[in-house]
Simulated scan of single mutants.
Amino acid sequence: MSNLSFRQQIFLLLAEKIDQERSIQSLYHIMTGKKSSQTIQDIKWYRLTNYFYIFPYWKESDFIKEAEELLRNHFFSTRDSRVCITEKGRRQNAVFLADYEWPLLFNGWQYGRSGPVFWKRLALYVQCISHSLAGNRTFLPVFEDPGVQQWLKTVWPKNKNEKLAAAEEMFRELHNCLQWLSPLDAVLITYRLSGSGYTGLTFQQLALLVQKDTDECYFRFQAAVHYLLEQAGYSKQLNRIAADLVQTSMLTNTTKKTLRYLNQNYSLYDIAFQRKLKTSTIEDHIVEIASEQADFPLEQYVSSKNQQLILYHSRRMQTMRLKAIKEAVQEEDIDYFSIRLTLAYYGGHHGNTR
């Protein structure tokens, strides 16, 4: 097999990133955006936010088939259920990376779930403004999402002059943003939009137009949407569309509940009792909090000495596998929770274990 699909190529790049550290299933959970404590830890520890939620639609049965195809063709092997990139796989990645032009921004962790809603709002807003100014009262909306349609009512211009001003401002803002993207990525955005006399293209139609893999078109389109979200704060119209979508805290809802108890000085065990959850589940939540908060009081859980030991052995062995680090620090009687918490804190937005 000489030509890989785009999905398989991304799989192989991710496999090299976590070589001999994680299972095939872990890769699947990262690329489809599973918000479990383990997956969140993985993307933080290995700096994989640009792979998280990259293919949310990838069915597990299809993923297994494509992974097995890569395995049969010796692009990677397995050891103790962990993915091990082969020399053939490394060469394939090197060839791909040598001339592939990455999008300006892709952050599935930050924008993976807000991006699609932002796009629905933007596309419906543009379509409705276009048809209204053309005098078209009857048309099929690009999205029939009740939440998005309700949002549109709250920002809809009151009269024709306001509509004209909004349309001109939107054009300028989009033009200013899209000129920083590659021509390909700008085309993927503009050709997806609908308006009076024009219907946006599907990803399949775009793939034929630009002669790219459909999955690659989807990836690059989402990357462009992420970039628009990133720039929304500098643009009046885009900022209105992005309002309330971008979360400042990426904690899961159940972890937010645990955080409220922590802020009231409840102990780990008291929180588990109050929430009727296992202690290990509350530990997962605390690890998630440590990875997100720069002011997390790590010393309350792990002494400075033990933190340094954990980081030293992680760097020395160039691994973040808990079992390997636990064996290296066993004489110090450091438990798994301390290791996870330390790696999470220094592997989040405020540290580096590498």
Rank of each mutant, 00 (worst) to 15 (best):
D295K: 15
S291C: 10
T342S: 08
T199K: 15
I325C: 01
L262I: 07
H313P: 03
T342D: 07
T279P: 02
Q274G: 05
N265I: 02
T258K: 07
A207R: 01
Y218R: 13
I286Q: 04
S338K: 01
Y198T: 15
F337D: 00
L238S: 03
K256F: 12
I334N: 11
A344E: 03
R260H: 15
F337C: 02
S314T: 05
T319V: 03
N239I: 02
T248A: 13
Q300N: 14
R260K: 14
A223T: 09
E288P: 09
D333A: 13
Q293L: 14
A324N: 08
Q231F: 04
M317C: 05
Q300R: 14
L228T: 02
Q274R: 15
M320V: 03
V287L: 10
S235L: 06
L341G: 07
S249W: 02
L309M: 10
Y336V: 09
Q222S: 03
I289N: 04
Q211E: 04
Q211I: 01
R275N: 11
Q293P: 02
I334C: 11
Q237N: 09
E327C: 00
T254Q: 14
E299C: 07
S304I: 11
Q237A: 06
I334P: 00
S314C: 06
A294N: 05
L245T: 04
K305D: 00
A324K: 09
T319S: 10
T214I: 08
Q247M: 11
V225Q: 07
R275W: 12
K276M: 08
Y266P: 04
D295F: 14
N263D: 10
F203R: 03
A290W: 02
D335Y: 04
M317H: 10
L238Y: 01
M317A: 05
I334S: 09
L268F: 08
A324G: 02
Y198M: 11
S267T: 14
V329M: 01
E283V: 06
Y218S: 05
V246N: 07
C217L: 04
H226E: 06
L311A: 03
S280W: 12
R240S: 13
L311M: 09
A243D: 12
S303W: 11
R220V: 01
A290V: 05
H285G: 14
Q293S: 11
F221G: 00
D213V: 06
L208K: 10
K305T: 00
D244A: 10
I271C: 13
Y345M: 10
Q222I: 02
A328Q: 01
A344D: 01
F273I: 15
L259C: 11
F296H: 07
D295S: 15
Q308V: 08
T342P: 03
L201E: 09
E216R: 00
T258P: 07
Q330Y: 03
L201W: 12
I271L: 07
K236Q: 13
Y336I: 12
M317P: 01
Q264R: 15
L309K: 12
V302K: 15
Q231H: 03
F337T: 00
Y227Q: 00
K323S: 08
S267A: 10
K323M: 04
I325G: 00
Q231P: 07
K257D: 07
E331L: 13
I310Q: 06
D295Y: 09
D335E: 08
I286C: 03
T255L: 14
I289Y: 04
Y301D: 02
Y312H: 13
Q237F: 10
Y345L: 12
K212R: 11
A272V: 12
M317I: 05
Y227K: 07
